[in-house]
Nucleic acid binder design. Structure first.
Lengths: 117, 117
DNA sequence: CTAGACTTTGACATCGATGTGAGAGTCAAG
DNA sequence: CTTGACTCTCACATCGATGTCAAAGTCTAG
């Protein structure tokens, strides 16, 4: 599919899809015309990117992580070496973030509860 | 206490404490010299601010929310009227965010697990 | 009184993902 | 051939919290 369809199917702006490619997160094939040609798998890939971005990872880190995600699902554990340290750090950061969000939500809930009595 | 101590006790940069005041999140008294004078309660206040910021609320929204947080704890439910809609929206956004973070963490865990087998 | 630590205001920089627009090329349908 | 929808690249703007620096005023210990 071309970029327009991918944008439609993922809800992600074309500008961003190009940006993700620039950052090495997507590798569409090029037609003779120069048009980008994406595969069906890229729909899932974009979802993963969005999830990791939402989790606070930057595109550089995601670029390191993505090659691994493809494998882990299948059972084929790729050789993803020393970025393990980074991954653990990210995971811990996410855990802290989740805890913080819980605190914040509890706070809001208390206000909502008290206000709407 | 003055700004230096508050910064030390909260771990928040002085620059930010001034910024929070500018945004209406803190209201330190001024000494004749112009120095800001904070109360002990402001330590907690700053923590709340940091939590809500981390949860993705912007300073404007936080400025609306904070006056309420002081009360809900005590039982005195202040009249925090129509920002209720905003609060529910924020809470839902936070919930979605938590869900996304869980997804991301699971993803990272899978990779970590598969890699360090 | 003086030195040094602290504070003040104000301005400018940064960061990274994201939005937007212009000008030009591609392509399929009529 | 022409039109309209799609795509390309490139450049510039934005947003909001945060960092940092400069010049000047305040205060306290010696």
């Amino acid at each position: 599919m071309r970029i327009g369809e991918l944008a439609r199917r993922t809800g992600v702006n074309q500008r961003l899809l190009r940006y993700y490619e620039e950052q090495g997160l997507l590798r569409p094939v090029r037609r003779p015309s120069g048009y980008r040609e994406y595969g069906d798998a890229d729909v899932e890939q974009v979802r993963r990117i969005r999830t990791l971005l939402a989790a606070g990872l930057n595109t550089t880190t995601i670029a390191d992580v993505l090659p691994c995600t493809a494998d882990t699902g299948n059972g084929l554990a790729a050789a993803c070496p020393d970025l393990l340290t980074d991954l653990r750090r990210e995971r811990d950061r996410i855990s802290r973030s989740i805890a913080e969000l819980h605190t914040a939500r509890t706070m809001l809930d208390a206000i909502i509860e008290a206000t709407s009595h």
